[in-house]
Design a binder for these strands. Structure first.
Lengths: 232, 232
DNA sequence: TCGACTTTGTGCATATCTTCACAAAGGCAC
DNA sequence: GTGCCTTTGTGAAGATATGCACAAAGTCGA
C-alpha cells in the first residue's frame, strides 16, 4: 500500500467522502431538472439522506464552492463534483459475461448518462455470441484483449460465473486494465495498483437478515444465548 | 447518547464486522467443499481478502471459537457465523419489479443456498404479469400486501424504476416489512426501525472512475489543479 | 452604510474501525 | 510431565470518520 504523504495542496479525499459524492450528484441532478438554482447544505443533505455537517465537510474537501448565507449553486456544484469524480470524460466500459445480470447491466440507463459508454459485451458461450443487446453485438471472450485495446476500455465489469472470474480478471489486467467492478461471488486476487470493487447481492441480503433477526428476537437483550448444548 | 454498558455477554457486533461475516462464510464454504477440516486465521484471512488480525477480532465478537495452536474448525465456524447472521432460518423474500434486474435477481443462485427463498415476484406491467420466471409466476403489484401477509415475507427487494420505488416502499412498510434491499436509484424515506440497504450499480462505477482518473493523471501528485479559469 | 439574518466552513470532541504486538492457551513430541 | 511450537484473543495505539457548535462571511432590506 502506498504511503500517503500529505501534499501542499492535499488532494487526498477520504474514501468515505468519495463514496458519497455520487449520492450528492444524483440529488443535485434531480434538483437541476426541477429548475432549482441554489441549494443549502441542509436541503441537499436531506435529499441525499445524510447529515448536513457531513455534507459540508465532504464538499469542503473539494474546495470552497458555497456562498455563505445563500448555499451552493446547483449547476456549478454538479460540475465540480463531476470533475472530481472524473465524469467529465468518457469512460469505455466492457462487460464480460452476458447472463441475466450482464444483460441487466447492459440495459441499465444509469451508465450512459454519467459518462460510462459500454464499448463491448463479451461471453464465452457460442449461443450468446452474436446476440444484439442494448445496441451491441455480443463478442466471444477470445476477443477480450483486442476489444480492450482497440476500443480503449479502461474499466471492466465482470458478470461471469464465479469459476471464470479470476481467469477473466487476470486477462484484463494483463491487457492493461486497472479498474474492475466484480459481480462474481469470489475474492479476486490482483496485483498492487489494480482497483477492484465488488457488488455482492447475497451479502446485502445476509446483512439485512442479521438485523431482521435482531429485531425479531425482542430487541438488543437476548435472553438465552445457548439454548442447549451446541458442542463441537 | 446511550452509553454502552458492556453486558456480561456483549451482543453488540460492530457493523463493519457484520458486513464481513458473509465474506468469511463464503470462504469457509469453499474450504468445506474441498474437505478442509480446520483453518488458521492467517489462511482464512487470505481467502477472504482481509488482514488476519481483523479476522480474529471479528470472530472474537461472536465468541471464542478457535483453538490456540490449531485454528478454527471449519464446520463449526460455518455454523456459528450462519447462526449469528440468521441464516439457519428460512427467509421469505419478495422481489418487486421484474425488469432485467429483477429477472437477474430471481435467477441468481446465491440466494436459495443461504436460506433466502423467493416467495413472490411482482410487477405493475400487465404484459409481465403471468410470466413464469425461476419457477414462479409473476403477480400484479395490486397483490403486494396480500402476498407479503400470506407468505410471511419479511424482506423485500425493490427493483422497480426510480419513480415507483418510494410508493412500493411505503406500501411494504405499511404491510409490516422492516427490511428492504433497494436497487432503485433513489434515497428512500423510511420511518425509524426500518432497515434499508442500497445497491447502486452506477455509484460503484463512479468510485472506480475517481480512482482511475487519479492513476491516469500521473499518480498522487497532480501538477496543475486549476488548468484555467473555471469561474462561476 | 449598517445591522439583522442566513448559511458556510471548520476546530474540536467523540465514536468507530484498523492494526500491531504479545501474553496466554493449547497441541504435540519425547 | 516438560518444554517447544503454533496460533488465538485482546489491550493499546493509531487512523478514520462523524457530528456538534460556532465564528466568519456573505446577502439583503432599509
Amino acid at each position: 500500500m502506498t504511503r500517503r504523504i500529505p501534499q501542499a495542496r492535499d488532494r487526498g479525499i477520504p474514501d468515505a467522502t468519495v463514496a458519497r459524492l455520487p449520492l450528492y450528484l444524483r440529488a443535485l441532478n434531480g434538483m437541476a431538472e426541477r429548475g432549482t438554482a441554489t441549494v443549502s447544505s441542509e436541503d441537499l443533505a436531506l435529499a441525499a439522506g445524510v447529515n448536513s455537517a457531513k455534507l459540508r465537510k465532504d464538499l469542503s474537501h473539494l474546495g470552497s464552492y458555497g456562498t455563505r448565507g445563500v448555499g451552493y449553486d446547483v449547476q456549478y456544484l454538479i460540475y465540480q463534483i463531476s470533475r472530481e469524480l472524473g465524469l467529465t470524460q468518457d469512460w469505455a466500459v466492457a462487460i464480460v459475461g452476458v447472463g441475466n445480470l450482464g444483460r441487466a447491466l447492459a440495459n441499465y440507463g444509469g451508465f450512459a448518462s454519467r459518462g460510462f459508454r459500454i464499448a463491448g459485451l463479451l461471453d464465452a458461450d457460442p449461443h450468446v455470441v452474436g446476440d444484439r443487446i442494448a445496441g451491441l453485438v455480443v463478442e466471444h471472450t477470445d476477443e477480450l484483449e483486442s476489444v480492450i485495446k482497440k476500443r480503449g476500455v479502461s474499466i471492466v465489469v465482470i458478470a461471469t460465473p464465479a469459476t471464470a472470474a479470476q481467469q477473466v480478471c487476470d486477462r484484463v489486467i494483463a491487457a492493461g486494465v486497472t479498474s474492475i467492478l466484480n459481480f462474481a461471488p469470489v475474492v479476486l486476487a490482483v496485483p498492487d495498483g489494480v482497483d477492484v470493487r465488488k457488488v455482492d447481492l447475497s451479502i446485502e441480503l445476509q446483512i439485512l437478515a442479521f438485523h431482521e433477526q435482531r429485531k425479531a428476537n425482542g430487541g438488543p437483550i437476548m435472553a438465552e444465548e445457548w439454548p442447549d448444548g451446541v458442542v463441537m
